[in-house]
Amino acid sequence: MKKIMVTGCNGQLGRAINKEMGQDSSLEFINTDVGELDITDVNKVLSFVQEVKPYAIINCAAHTNVNKCETDVDNAYKINAIGPRNLSIAAARTGAKLMHVSTDYVFDGNGSKPYIEFDPVDPVGMYGATKLAGETFVREFAKDWFIIRTAWLYGDGNNFVKTMLRLSEQNDTVRVVADQFGTPTSASELAKAIKALIFTDNYGIFHGTCEGSCSWAEFASEIFRLAGKSTKVDYITTEEFASPAPRPAYSVLENYMLKLTTDFRFADWHDALVEYMNQEKSI
């Protein structure tokens, strides 16, 4: 039986991984969150991983509050950089594979065509900078590693889809940024991609997002359309929204490495959103 250790197990992706792979009787899941394991403490991580001896570690833990990362810099580096470093050291020492989840925010967003894995990185804010530091540590300290960058993730938990639906209950119009472009990505689809990679030796950096792209405002409009809401979307600029943290204007990712090296393909973002919203209705 292969042991799969998941950090950040209570987050959207952690839950999706357990749902996607949890029915496999050949796998045993060791689920941890901050209450079970402090990934920022190297000694605790080494002790835990040496005791568990997992086949693979999937690191879903992250400080994902983009605005807060600008002021909570120490914690952002601890969780997004030191944590992956510690897991990498432990994975290398025990012979475990490491699957580390990263972000589109490692790019500056000044381009106009989808980023591939071979494009230069240049984060514009602390969230992206700390996540990039985590990638660097994984490459430096882990032996058998995958890094999968994703974007605009939604699943079982607090997310943009649920926020928009909640706002639609209280407002006739919702103001949403229309000049930031990316790809809404279902946690379920990302879990499928991780499953397709984790049992292989196809190591390296991968992009993992649903196919296609849109703005946040277009994403909101599609959510309301599918939910049968009459709420209107007021398309506004990033400047009008006045966020504390800088965000990449165009961070669409191309799943180039997956297409070059595997048969796995993500669903189109529209189709994945339909599936997610249908599941939410049935819960």
Rank of each mutant, 00 (worst) to 15 (best):
P54T: 11
G109A: 02
V161M: 01
Y105A: 12
G35N: 15
G212Y: 05
Y154A: 03
L253E: 00
A81R: 01
G22V: 02
S88C: 08
M99C: 10
A76T: 10
R15V: 10
Y276S: 10
R93D: 09
G111R: 14
M164E: 06
T183L: 01
A220P: 12
N31C: 13
N202A: 04
G35Q: 13
R85H: 08
M1A: 15
T185S: 15
L98G: 06
T238N: 10
T209V: 11
A151G: 10
F29H: 11
D122K: 12
R265W: 03
D72I: 06
S282F: 07
R139H: 13
L260M: 15
A76E: 00
P244G: 05
E222T: 07
A187M: 10
T262R: 08
N86A: 02
A76G: 07
L165M: 13
T71P: 13
K192M: 09
D33T: 13
Q180A: 06
Y256A: 15
G14S: 15
V6A: 03
K281Y: 08
Y55D: 09
T32H: 13
I205C: 09
Q12N: 14
D172V: 00
P184H: 02
S88V: 05
L190C: 04
N31T: 07
R15A: 09
A16E: 14
S47P: 08
I198R: 04
A81H: 04
A227N: 09
A81W: 01
E211H: 05
E70K: 01
T71K: 15
K68I: 09
S243V: 04
I205V: 12
F199N: 10
G8Q: 10
K97G: 02
I17C: 08
A76P: 06
N80I: 01
P123R: 04
A267L: 12
E36A: 08
S221A: 12
A178Q: 12
V52T: 12
G83C: 01
W145A: 03
D104K: 00
C214L: 05
G95T: 05
T183W: 00
